[in-house]
């Protein structure tokens, strides 16, 4: 299937790679079909590209790259709605927000995106009573400071 994207042009994606978010994604409730793009140049960041709207691609990453101990509690009924047969088919992503100062980028650990890659189903699960932060800094303050130095030197 050919998918038009505003960031990466027209891409040819196998039909089986299409992921249905039957409830949409909060803020994009009317868009239910997505593909997960792993574009070499932007790894380790991925893009959850809407099939029906070229402008919509949520930037995502592996939450375990930010917090290795991340352990979101997802209800069994929520996994059932993704028609999961084997936990090994599950992929967990977190959305990334980048402010003007990129070293202050954050991920949303309070609402992971869970994908059943084999079954082509996905959902964003807003965790109930969670200790995880909706704006978890990707880099610690120390890392951010280090990056600010690099930028200054480069300029």
């Amino acid at each position: 299937m050919r998918i038009d994207t505003s960031k990466f042009g027209v891409l040819d994606v196998p039909d089986k790679k299409i992921i249905t978010f039957s409830c949409g994604i909060l803020g994009f409730e009317n868009l239910t079909e997505y593909v997960l793009l792993n574009i070499e140049e932007t790894l380790p960041f991925y893009w959850l590209q809407a099939v029906e709207n070229r402008e919509v691609a949520l930037s995502c990453m592996n939450p375990f790259d930010v917090m290795p101990s991340y352990n979101p509690e997802v209800g069994l009924d929520e996994l059932e709605s993704l028609m999961v047969e084997d936990a090994a088919d599950l992929l967990i992503l977190t959305t990334v927000v980048v402010p003007a100062e990129p070293s202050k980028a954050t991920v949303n650990l309070a609402a992971p995106i869970i994908i059943n890659a084999k079954g082509g189903r996905g959902a964003q699960i807003v965790l109930q009573n969670t200790k995880y932060n909706i704006r978890q800094p990707i880099f610690s303050d120390k890392e951010g400071a280090k990056y600010a130095d690099i930028v200054k030197k480069a300029e």
Binding site: G27, F28, A57, S59, T95, V96, V97, V98, N108, A111
Partner: peptide, 8 residues
């Protein structure tokens, strides 16, 4: 937050 994430 999702909207900001799609605005990058």
């Amino acid at each position: 937050n999702n909207k900001q994430s799609a605005d990058i």
